[in-house]
Amino acid sequence: MENFNKASTSIKNWAEDDRPREKLSLKGAATLSNAELLAILINNGSKEKSAVELAREILQLGQNNLNELGRLSIGDLKKIKGIGEAKAIIITAALELGRRRQATAALEKKVVKTSNDVAEYLRAIIKDFSFEVFAVLFLNQANRINHFEILSKGGITGTVADPRVILKKALDNSATSIILCHNHPSGNLLPSQADKDLTHKIKEAAKFIDIKVIDHIIVSEDGYYSFADDGNL
């Protein structure tokens, strides 16, 4: 149960200067520590700990690193006494919004010029998955990104991407070229034989509808690999 009678630990009973909500309202979000921002999401503490104390425990679970925190599952968060399903879901949703904001800033009206342009965007949005995901960037004739979509998700050993689905999406989004992309949770950036076979299969199929596959990017926390840069396309 998360709703306890906690007169001594409720944020409402703290000194006004120590209340994260009031501090945010008066001084702005940038003045709050990570723990204080998390405390606002948590809303209230437990019988033993305040919301800020619980927030500090959460940060420690993520090694005091927001990137590591973003990798924690709802189950991981619930291991902390005082964090139930509802609080864990709120925290997870907030972290995902932050990730999407970062990725969207890189995506908006972006013209793709180099593999690094693509990798910068991709690493922001798919590098933290603990399983492989396959996604596609759909570009217009000016190499501007019209659309990005994760098309399949798989286990940690691999994922399957259907060329028919990819090419239908390309037509639906008026794409003249596409960039294939997926992550390697293991950190190994070298393409597997299956990666090479799939790339060739999609490239050949795309030729029949005048859509060009201009690259296939593999990303991990350690960096990226470009089929085009390496002469494998």
Rank of each mutant, 00 (worst) to 15 (best):
112 V>A: 07
117 D>P: 04
119 A>H: 08
96 E>R: 14
192 S>C: 06
188 N>Y: 00
64 N>F: 03
70 G>P: 01
84 G>H: 10
198 L>A: 00
184 H>C: 06
104 T>Q: 13
81 K>P: 04
91 I>C: 13
187 G>R: 10
118 V>S: 01
104 T>Y: 11
81 K>T: 10
70 G>V: 08
109 K>P: 00
135 A>I: 03
68 E>G: 08
134 F>I: 07
179 I>A: 01
170 A>T: 01
190 L>S: 15
187 G>P: 02
71 R>M: 07
125 I>G: 04
163 P>D: 05
77 L>F: 13
184 H>S: 05
202 I>S: 03
168 K>V: 08
196 K>N: 09
128 D>R: 14
129 F>D: 13
150 I>C: 04
117 D>A: 09
86 A>I: 14
95 L>S: 11
193 Q>F: 06
92 T>N: 13
189 L>G: 10
65 N>G: 04
112 V>N: 04
202 I>P: 04
99 R>C: 14
83 I>G: 02
193 Q>I: 12
93 A>M: 13
187 G>V: 06
75 G>A: 12
73 S>C: 06
186 S>V: 02
93 A>V: 09
183 N>H: 10
122 L>I: 07
138 F>M: 01
135 A>W: 05
118 V>P: 01
170 A>F: 02
194 A>P: 00
118 V>H: 03
148 F>I: 02
96 E>V: 07
116 N>M: 07
91 I>D: 13
190 L>E: 15
129 F>T: 13
200 H>L: 09
160 V>N: 10
164 R>W: 03
138 F>T: 03
119 A>M: 12
132 E>L: 10
84 G>N: 13
155 G>V: 11
108 E>V: 15
130 S>W: 01
185 P>M: 11
127 K>W: 10
177 S>I: 03
117 D>Y: 09
102 Q>G: 15
189 L>V: 12
126 I>V: 15
101 R>T: 11
185 P>G: 08
191 P>I: 12
136 V>Q: 02
82 G>R: 02
144 R>Q: 14
194 A>R: 00
152 S>V: 02
102 Q>V: 14
97 L>T: 08
91 I>A: 08
164 R>H: 08
192 S>N: 04
68 E>V: 11
195 D>I: 06
183 N>Y: 10
71 R>I: 05
152 S>T: 08
194 A>Q: 02
97 L>V: 14
94 A>V: 10
127 K>F: 12
103 A>V: 02
77 L>M: 12
128 D>H: 14
137 L>G: 05
168 K>I: 12
149 E>P: 03
200 H>Q: 07
181 C>I: 03
137 L>R: 05
113 K>L: 11
64 N>A: 00
179 I>C: 02
89 I>T: 13
188 N>G: 04
169 K>P: 00
109 K>G: 06
126 I>R: 02
122 L>T: 01
192 S>K: 09
134 F>W: 09
191 P>S: 12
136 V>S: 04
98 G>R: 11
93 A>Y: 12
117 D>H: 13
87 K>G: 04
98 G>K: 03
163 P>Q: 04
126 I>P: 03
75 G>S: 13
92 T>G: 09
107 L>F: 14
